[in-house]
Amino acid sequence: MNCLDYRRALLAGTGEADAMRVHRLQCAGCTAEWQEHAAFEGALRQALEVPVPEGFAERMTTVPVARRRRFLAAAATTLVAVGAGSYAWLARQDPLALACIDFVMKEEAKSIMMGAMPRAEARVALAGTLPVEVLEGVGQVRHISPCPFNGATAYHVVLAVPQGKVTLLVMPSAPMRGVRHADKEGMHAAVVATKNGSVGIVGADAAVVMSVAGAFQAYAATRSA
């Protein structure tokens, strides 16, 4: 290790490995750099540790209890309506549904950062597959943007429904039949057919995903009737 490697490693904050320590003990310049860096790191850590509201941790463990109870009651109602057998699909891992979950975990942030498309353009783009009016009938549309997905262009939608938020991937070029499902790292996905395509629904809550998928299936059934 030389001085340049040592100082690069310090700046990346990866900690002082054995090889670094050996170099520092033999180099007065890097020893001085290390001492200055230690003071810098202390100040940086202190600056990052912004004051936390008093009793915050306790509030986070106790206040949401009422919301949890409301959720359990709502989820129980949904389960009765959908049928207990519906949860059998959670064990199935469809590749397209898994790709939808991977998108949420790896690509969604970038897609949101790049900004939403104008709503008028979105209305035109989705009209043939899953109209914005249908989305607005299910929840509040927070974001729509085109994105590369599964080798084609899809539309990334963030939809807020009364029970929480879900991510949609509207896929005009992926017609399908039936329902596909996946479950990965606490996220659930269902892919259902729409007019001239399909839509993937991803969320942390299986009951909410199922509920939204049901609404889109109802729309697709109406269109084909």
Binding site: E108, A109, M113, H143, V158, G186
Partner: peptide
């Protein structure tokens, strides 16, 4: 999860 929730909030 905190990161995802923040980015979801950014959508609006």
């Amino acid at each position: 999860i905190v990161r995802r929730e923040y980015l979801r909030a950014l959508g609006s």
